[in-house]
Design a protein around this nucleic acid. Structure first.
Length: 826
RNA sequence: GGGCAAGUGGUGGAAUGGCAUACACGAAGGACUUAAAAUCCUUUGGCCGUCAGGCUGUGAGGGUUCGACUCCCUCCUUGCCCACCA
């Protein structure tokens, strides 16, 4: 048979069917076998799979298949993150309902995944919109409620006017909605939160244990959690004596505080401006700032607006009376919502002070500019220096003073050292239909009552008409809303908000361990066997959102005693984006390449090989429709080798140099491919290594190296190529293995090839000779020579002699079995 | 404004202290063919040279080293993340 697309299609369909019929990748927890759990971030089912999915899942599949061949019991499941707003939008657009639309997308997606030949245990397939799944969302929510971790509070929240729903802080990217990119507004609402802040310390500390996570993901999470040590300093309102705490990380600058600024929504503001002569003016300023969206505030940039309240505060360290202002650049969400302003040493304060002609005083002398005065400053000096104008602390290095001043203030009740976190509680209620109903009932007598576990799941009503106009459609469904109070039996109202879909995806990796268990959230033994996930693979865009939430849920399950580990994902790989003409492939840009069209032209194997070969997995990948030809050509050469040059024989014959060289190349390649994948996911160089071996086999088979061909060596080499390629291009390799493997066993269940160190060794090697660091020649020498013998051979080399004529050898540097460098002078 | 990553042929990329450009794409020339496609062979960083070979070369500049794409410092450019976080 020749290598044609029709033949490839036939082979790929044949093996996809065989894997499916035989449930080739179905696994069970068996404690006597070593396990390996490979997981990719499950897709949102929005239609067909795209190139990003292909890349993500191909990487995972190679790892899964390699581990299988290495004898591990490999769990490699797949499911769908199926709740969420796009389904509602699509339902409106296509005049259908979200469930119908979603299930149809799932079917399309599953077919796309099947066509790629991924090694999933399809018996564990889950979709979060199934009530068998969201039942357990509700159960988890109840457990959190029991422990006070799920609670409802009124607060200013992020509100996306276009999605008409609330958003978590993590879903606001640069002031915009992560999904629709519209500006996010602030709104006062009563909403459900999860107390992720209770876990801030643990979430931060345990990042240290994640040795095999990309450093930048760790850094992003650290910054997001944002632990900062500082001092809460007790200023006093002069007139009333009320305490006004401000937070600072720079206690060393306390003597330079020349005014105090409050956020416009600070609780004290109303009182402070009560008797102000320009009260009306101040109030209208407050209104204006309150109505600004976050992104407006940021884009307003350096211009800082504010007003004087007419009141003064007393600085506890020197009893100085300084004015109290309100301004747009101080945020109620962080610290105490009030700051001491030190314009000489904080750029924001500096700009504000210039704008409003407020006084300044230098308290940290810039060592490069020790005599400058506040009037000389063109900008705030934020660097280190020596304390000045700071009473008894004068002369201290400011780094030291931070600590000393904090202790002194604490001792004198002027303040206390404090810890502030940037992390906020997670807002999880959404005013949308297509999500998990929050299992809570509101009763006039009993208040907020959780739905009892035995009444779960609270089912999401179906065939609901969605308008997309304000609020959850659930609120208008009388049958849903009106219920009996589980506690007193009187008539009561159901909660009509649904859960954010990030709730669903925060624990799905545990559900895969017991995918269809209807009695419990997951089985303890099964989770104990499979978890944690050994290798997790997905996009960097989830560096904070999903990966932080999942870590939080895992810590919560540990507290419940359901699991015994602290972190869900041992190793994390974040794959790069797929680009076309330098831009990210996306539907909105219209620059997508449909995997299906590539498959019908070249087959899934070529697509898989190309996407792994074109770039390292963490880098961006530029789609090049020419370059894919190279992958096709390579596979056809492998095919021809197996078809035309593999001939079973019996017995063996002595080896020539050319035979030994090929055999050595075979072992080198096994070593390289195994290490490239395992040590750094270097699929691109692993593949290039196999290409090198194929090139060598072709030369050998064509008689380029020697006129005599040793068929046994040739056969071994071809077999090795097919085995090494099996994780990358599984369909082709299954087919070739059937022809040359000499067994009926699937290649997926065949042992990964081994290499022998002694075959890698060479009797003679080439030593690179440098003179003063420049390449000047090469010498054939026996391996493992000592310095003196090596020196003898190298210095006897004719060419080297030429270079050394009339010079003195000053040093002779040897890198064993590799290189010598002769340092010469005149 | 802060943080992180990256910068290597015409292109994707390889080499992480020791032969710069593996592997592939593209291009050029050749073989086969009536012709084309496919396939195979050869060449392919730049400059000089008929060859042998020489010089030069990894964003720019400096440093460390016998030796630097690799380590350190300064700068430039690009990408990503965070951002009035006190």
């Amino acid at each position: 048979m020749s290598y044609t697309i029709d033949e490839i299609k036939r082979i790929e369909e044949k093996w996809q069917k065989a894997w499916q019929d035989e449930k080739a990748f179905k696994v069970n927890a068996s404690p006597d076998k070593k396990k390996y759990y490979v997981l990719e971030m499950f897709p949102y089912p929005s239609g067909k799979i795209h190139m990003g999915h292909v890349r993500n899942y191909t990487i995972a599949d190679v790892i899964a298949r390699l581990k299988m061949m290495q004898g591990f019991n490999v769990l490699h499941p797949m499911g769908y993150d199926a709740f969420g707003q796009p389904a509602e939008n699509a339902a409106i657009k296509n005049k259908t309902d979200p469930k119908t639309w979603t299930l149809q997308c799932i079917n399309q997606m599953r077919e796309g995944l099947r066509r790629m030949g991924f090694s999933y245990d399809w018996d564990r397939e889950i979709a979060t919109c199934d009530k068998e799944y969201y039942h357990w969302n509700q159960w988890i929510f109840l457990k959190m409620m029991e422990r006070g971790l799920a609670y409802k509070k009124a607060s200013s929240v992020n509100w996306c006017p276009s999605c008409e729903t609330t958003l978590a802080n993590e879903e606001v990217i640069q002031g915009e909605c992560w999904r629709c990119h519209n500006k996010v507004a602030q709104k006062d609402l009563e909403q459900w939160y999860l107390k992720i802040t209770d876990y801030a310390e643990e979430l931060l500390d345990d990042l240290k244990t994640l040795q095999n996570w990309p450093a930048r993901v760790i850094t992003m999470q650290e910054n997001w959690i944002g632990k900062s040590y500082g001092v809460e300093i007790y200023f006093k309102v002069k007139k009333t004596g009320e305490i006004l705490p401000v937070f600072t990380t720079r206690a060393d600058t306390i003597f330079g505080a020349t005014y105090v600024v409050l956020a416009v929504d600070h609780p004290l503001v109303e009182k402070l401006i009560k008797e102000a002569s320009n009260k009306k003016e101040i109030e209208s300023f407050i209104e204006k700032v309150k109505n600004q969206s976050k992104s407006d505030r940021v884009s307003a940039g350096l211009k800082k607006e504010g007003m004087f309240t007419g009141q003064y505060a007393v600085n506890p360290v020197n009893k100085e009376e300084i004015p109290i202002w309100i301004a747009d650049y101080v945020l109620m969400e962080y610290g105490t919502g009030a700051i001491m302003a030190v314009p000489t040493h904080d750029q924001r304060d500096f700009l504000f002070a210039k704008e409003h002609q407020l006084p300044m005083r230098i308290v940290i002398a810039d060592p490069a500019n020790p005599d400058q005065t506040a009037a000389d400053l063109k900008q705030a000096y934020e660097g280190d220096g020596i304390q000045v104008n700071s009473s008894q602390f004068n002369g201290l290095a400011n780094r030291e003073a931070i600590q000393k001043i904090a202790e002194w203030m604490e001792a004198g009740n002027m303040g206390k050292t404090t810890l502030y976190w940037r992390l906020r509680d997670w807002l999880i209620s959404r005013q949308r239909y297509w999500g998990t109903p929050i299992p809570v009932v509101y009763c006039r007598q009993c208040g907020t009552v959780p739905v009892p576990e035995k009444d779960l799941p609270v089912e999401l009503p179906e065939k609901v008409s969605i308008t997309g106009q304000g609020g959850s459609p659930l609120a208008s469904l009388k049958d849903f809303v009106v219920t009996d109070c589980p506690r007193c039996g009187n008539i009561a109202k159901r909660e009509t908000d649904t859960m954010a879909t990030f709730f669903d995806s925060s624990w799905y990796f545990l559900r895969f361990c017991s995918a269809h268990n209807s009695d419990e959230v997951f089985n303890h033994q099964e989770a104990h066997y499979w978890m944690p996930v050994d290798q997790y693979i997905g996009g960097i865009e989830h560096a904070i959102l999903h990966l932080l939430y999942s870590r939080f849920f895992t810590k919560f399950f540990k507290e419940l005693g359901l699991i015994s580990f602290k972190e869900p994902f041992t190793r994390l790989l974040t794959q790069g984006m797929v680009l076309k003409e330098g831009e990210v492939m996306s539907k909105s840009k219209g620059n997508t390449v449909d995997p299906d069209s590539v498959i019908s032209q070249y087959g899934a194997d070529t697509l898989r090989l190309f996407i792994l070969f074109a770039a390292p997995p963490e880098d961006q990948l530029e789609w090049n429709s020419n370059a894919i030809e190279g992958s096709w050509r390579f596979l056809s050469r492998v095919w021809n080798l197996a078809e035309n040059h593999y001939h079973p024989i019996k017995g063996s014959s002595p080896l020539s140099d050319a035979d030994r060289a090929l055999e050595r190349q075979r072992h080198i390649t096994i070593k390289k491919v195994t290490e490239d994948i395992e040590r750094g996911f270097k699929f691109n160089t692993a593949i290039s290594g196999i290409m090198v071996l194929v090139n060598a086999i072709e030369d050998y088979a064509k008689g380029k190296e020697s006129s005599r061909i040793n068929q046994r060596i040739l056969n071994e080499s071809i077999k090795t190529v097919v085995l090494l390629l099996a994780p990358f291009v599984p369909h082709l390799c299954e087919e070739l293995w059937q022809k040359i493997g000499g067994t009926n066993q699937m290649i997926a269940r065949t042992q990964w090839p081994q290499y022998a160190e002694d075959v890698l060794k060479q009797d003679t090697i080439q030593i690179v000779v440098q003179i003063n660091g420049k390449l000047r020649g090469k010498c054939e020498t026996p391996s493992d020579l000592g310095e003196s013998e090596l020196k003898k051979i190298v210095l006897a080399d004719e060419k080297i002699k030429e270079y050394l004529k009339g010079k003195t050898v000053k040093r002779f540097i040897v890198v064993p079995n590799k290189l010598v460098n002769i340092v010469i002078g005149d």
